[in-house]
Amino acid sequence: MANLNWEGIYPAVLTPFDEQYNIDFAMFAKNTEAQIEAGVHGIILAGSLGEASALSQEEKFLLLEKALEIVNGRIPVILNLTENTTKDAVEFAQKAEKLGADGLMVLPPMRYRADDREVVAFFKAIAQSSSLPILVYNNPIDYATYINLDMMEELLEEPTIQAVKESTRDLANITRLKNRFGDRLKILGGVDTICLESLMLGADGLVAGLVDAYPKETMALYNLAKAGEYEKAVELYRWFMPLLELDIHPKLIQYIKLAATYEGICTPFTRAPRLPLVGEEKERIEKLIEDAIAQRPQLTDYNYATI
């Protein structure tokens, strides 16, 4: 198993499809290699950006097996868990461990608005069912469940619960978490449009979206922030921001797949009910991507290779 310390850049990777909407494993391999070449610290499979809602459980495990083959121990491979019942979640975690996953990202129950006690019990049952390290996904904006500090205190009683994907969009929460838990909890920023601020406030890394299309730029931004080169980081961030805003739209999958297609490391196809972009929207997103490419900074200007 690859070393997993919950620090650095973890792409929530795309799931490329071919024109028949089957998983395009050749393109998946190409994107994965681009991520590894840029220096990412791990990948997360079948997350929101990976179209978890459009994948069967069988496909998720097949994706895990293929990813493990491609990665071959170079970086950790983390599988997202989005099951609706505790029984299914426990079985999913156990199978992921058996197949060789290095860790899990776990969402609260998706189709039932559980209360705090139920959410904690759900996460604890998963943690107690396998030895895989767990990243708790805290995203009350999109998934209605807020995991507060007291809930997190209970969750940290489980040694395998080690990190949180912080997607509350409240930057103050990073400081609250640091003040309460210190080094007991690793924090990964989960919102692209506040990724630099998250790092500057002490986040240990990022679960990133636009990294799927721009791995080198994302790594440069991370390396500059970690090196305290904030002036250069802000300059790069300002170029990046129009693209990063694609991550916070309901059509983030169509948008980011299109950006990655421009880079030659994805296909644009999404499974229904997501439909292809058309008309004014398609033209607008294409222009945004093309404008960014036209103004693309030379990473050598940011000493990317030496940081």
Rank of each mutant, 00 (worst) to 15 (best):
N3M: 15
N5W: 03
N5L: 07
G8H: 05
Y10M: 05
A12F: 07
P16V: 00
P16D: 00
D18E: 09
Y21F: 14
A29P: 00
K30E: 05
N31F: 03
E33Q: 06
Q35L: 12
E37S: 09
G39H: 04
V40N: 10
G42W: 08
G42S: 08
I44H: 07
L45G: 02
L45H: 10
S48N: 15
L49T: 02
G50L: 10
E51A: 12
L68Q: 02
E69K: 12
I70E: 12
I70Y: 13
R74S: 13
R74D: 12
R74F: 11
N80T: 11
T82N: 15
T85G: 10
T85S: 15
K87M: 09
A89I: 00
A89P: 02
V90N: 06
V90E: 10
F92A: 05
K95A: 05
P109A: 04
R111A: 14
A114C: 07
D115T: 02
D116V: 05
K124D: 04
I126R: 09
Q128V: 01
S130C: 14
L132C: 05
V136K: 01
I141S: 12
D142S: 09
A144N: 13
Y146D: 09
D150K: 15
M151Q: 08
E154F: 09
L155E: 03
E157I: 00
E166Q: 11
T168W: 11
I174E: 04
I174K: 04
T175F: 10
N179Y: 04
D183S: 11
R184K: 14
L185Q: 04
G189T: 01
G189N: 06
V191W: 06
C195Q: 14
G209V: 02
A213K: 02
K216F: 09
E217T: 00
A227Q: 05
A233S: 06
E235Q: 15
P250L: 10
K251I: 00
A259R: 09
E263Y: 05
C266Q: 01
L275G: 00
L277E: 08
V278F: 12
E280Q: 14
I285F: 09
I289D: 05
A294K: 14
Q295P: 04
R296S: 06
P297E: 09
T300L: 12
A305F: 15
